[in-house]
Design a protein around this nucleic acid. Structure first.
Length: 418
DNA sequence: AATCCACAGGAAGCCCGGGAAC
DNA sequence: GTTCCCGGGCTTCCTGTGGATT
């Protein structure tokens, strides 16, 4: 009985998606809507290499999901194409500094990408390969410079999330990258830095700052109308004809516009809504599916955050969840601390001071897992009223997954349950 | 008006692990 | 290998807060 219906059911319903890949934010579209201004500006700056000149460095700002990376990649691709027909060779090196963020690995990774791009060339054989680890920094730097300078060319270095490279004084990587032209005989480089953090520039060394911010391109958030255009374009490519009900795209756009115009968010929303509809066996995607998708995404986010919380924060959260389950009114800092101490004793964990726990509660609030409101209760002091933003039982299930707490064993949870 | 509760939250400093420099 | 430095987690100590109570 199972076998017979299994595929029948699936085949009977009409498909929702043509190709959902176009809804992923890793996909770079052939044309970028509502970013003409930025594309033009960037192209104007980056046209210099084609004339054999070195372009100035560029800093690109904008909130997440405003199309910064997509635009730069798009312009970069076009630039490489155009360079094939000109006498000047151009290489575009893309690096995400969130993933690669140490001095050593930035240089090594850039050199590696470049070697990769010139693997047909003869000179490649004489160039050093930088090992993953082991060399002193100056040697890595020399190898990097040698690789850059192997040919006559312009190298555009794109540093995505460049702010991740800056920690107070330690911007040596950026310093050496901005100075590297002085050591090159044949090649020229320029840097495109992408950041969603406007204030990071203030943390830079003055010399690096002036060098980096030769040109600036700002990416404003998309408004709801623009998001709608983007979604409509992608929806045409990804969904089967006529499966999207009236109002689906505007609602996705509205949700995302509320989240400071994040196009990624909008695309995710649309994709998840489609997936939910598919799972339900529905033939069309409705606004109700979008609402569910919105909740799912929000929920997934919180679940992920809780899972990765440090142990002590989990214990505090556990205390809050149990108290919240036991009584209807909001719990206070003092109550949480008392209960937290008890949990620590039962589980054999170190007990932190109440001051520290105050900070942990503030962090949980900031993460959106709880909602803490400062209240004055006159004679009965001043405290925070804490409410949980998700179901207590879900919190307890998630916390129970913690490796350290699972070593303690389930008896602690048995003891804690009401 | 004075008091007082139950914390909030700032400042300073300790401790420890990890990476860089020597 | 050793020393130095740095940042993050944490503690200690402290001052501030605003309305119910006296």
């Amino acid at each position: 009985m199972i076998q017979k219906n299994l595929f029948e059911d699936i085949m009977r319903t009409k498909p929702i998606f043509k190709n959902r890949e176009f809804l992923r934010h890793t996909y770079i579209p052939d044309r970028l809507l509502h970013r003409d201004e930025q594309v033009k500006q960037l192209a104007r700056i980056l046209a210099a290499p084609l004339r054999g000149e070195t372009p100035s460095n560029v800093l690109i700002y904008g909130k997440p999901g405003t199309g910064k990376t997509a635009t730069v990649r798009y312009v970069g691709k076009e630039l490489e194409e155009a360079s094939k027909n000109s006498q000047m060779k151009v290489n575009v090196l893309y690096l995400n500094c969130e993933i690669v963020n140490t001095h050593y690995r930035v240089l090594a990774s850039l050199a590696e990408t470049l070697l990769d791009q010139m693997k047909e060339s003869e000179v490649v054989k004489n160039l050093p390969r930088i090992p993953r680890t082991g060399w002193p920094l100056d040697e890595v730097y020399r190898a990097f410079v040698k690789t850059l300078d192997a040919e006559n060319r312009q190298v555009v270095i794109v540093l995505d999330e460049i702010d991740k490279l800056v920690r107070k004084e330690g911007d040596d990587v950026l310093y050496s990258l901005t100075r590297v032209n002085l050591e090159l005989k044949k090649a020229r480089t320029c840097i495109i830095g992408i950041s969603n953090n406007l204030s990071f520039i203030n943390m830079l060394d003055a010399r690096v700052r002036s060098s980096l911010s030769g040109e600036e391109v700002v990416f404003p958030p998309y408004n709801a109308n623009q998001l709608r255009d983007i979604l409509e374009e992608r929806a045409r490519m990804s969904f089967c004809d006529g499966v999207l009900a009236e109002g689906v795209i505007p609602l996705c756009a509205a949700y995302a516009a509320r989240e400071h115009g994040d196009a990624r968010r909008a695309l995710d929303l649309l994709r998840v809504a489609g997936e939910i509809a598919e799972e339900e066996g529905a033939e069309t995607v409705t606004v109700e599916h979008v609402r569910k998708a919105h909740e799912t995404i929000e929920q997934d986010h919180i679940v992920e955050v809780i899972k990765t919380l440090p142990l002590q924060s989990k214990l505090v959260l556990l205390a809050i969840s149990i108290l919240a389950q036991r009584k209807p009114r909001p719990v206070t800092t003092g109550e949480v601390y008392e209960y937290y101490k008890m949990i620590c004793h039962k589980s054999g964990t170190d007990v932190l001071t109440s001051r520290r726990v105050q900070d942990l509660i503030a962090e949980l609030d900031l993460l959106g897992i709880i909602c803490a409101r400062l209240v004055n209760r006159g004679r009965y002091g001043r405290t925070k009223e804490i409410k949980l933003n998700i179901h207590p039982l879900q919190v307890q299930a998630l916390v129970q997954e913690d490796a350290i707490l699972s070593l303690v064993g389930p008896e602690i949870f048995a003891f804690l349950s009401p």
